[in-house]
Design a protein around this nucleic acid. Sequence first.
DNA 1: GCGACAG
DNA 2: ATCTTGTCGC
Length: 233
Amino acid sequence: MEVRDLHPWPATPEAALAIQDRLRPLLVLDEPGPAEPRTVAGLDVSYAGDGGGTGARLAAAAVVLDATTLDVLEESVVTGTAAFPYVPGLFAFRELPALVEALRGLETTPDLLACDGYGVAHPRRFGLACHLGVLTGLPTIGVAKTGFVGAYEPPGARRGDASPLTEGGEVVGRVLRTQDGVKPVFVSVGHRAGLDDACRAVLDLARDHRLPETTRRADRLSRDALTARPPAA
DNA sequence: GCGACAG
DNA sequence: ATCTTGTCGC
């Protein structure tokens, strides 16, 4: 699929912040849906060694699933290095170049992109899912495994139970229980998506497990790619 | 000032 | 994210 060229990559947190400020106005947050995506791509990155610095070896994967059957339709994986150190709030700058490369390797243009992390539930309302939405123009959502920003009440114990994730009086996402009795996941919209449809999609994708099948597939693919032959002269 | 802090 | 043993459950 096509992905817009990346802006010059920031070398400092200050430069990264400036880019988020510049791109945020391009976000489209008044669209509902996608109501019935036929294809959904899951994105994830795995690392080797070095935990949080720049230059760590990594593998980024994009896996397209049939949203109804959860069958894998297409896979794309690339290896590379971390483009930025891990800084909460600037997480996207670490993985975006590799993820974009993985997306460009897809023949398919998915109806929805499911990212590992947050969308607007972010200190400056511009998490990874938002950034990827602006770069691709596609509807994106963020699904995170742990909390980051916002307050919430624990959702009910059954699959489908949810409670709002709020910050400063506004709802920035939803804490969603995807299976009975498991820890909930944190869903937030990224670009051109509505929270209700986002949660519907996550619930459909998390039919058999706590995490969406998209995330699980991308995680496995990226991890396997890293385990395989490291270099490739 | 002191924690907390997506992956 | 990744480093790690054993252990409980389907």
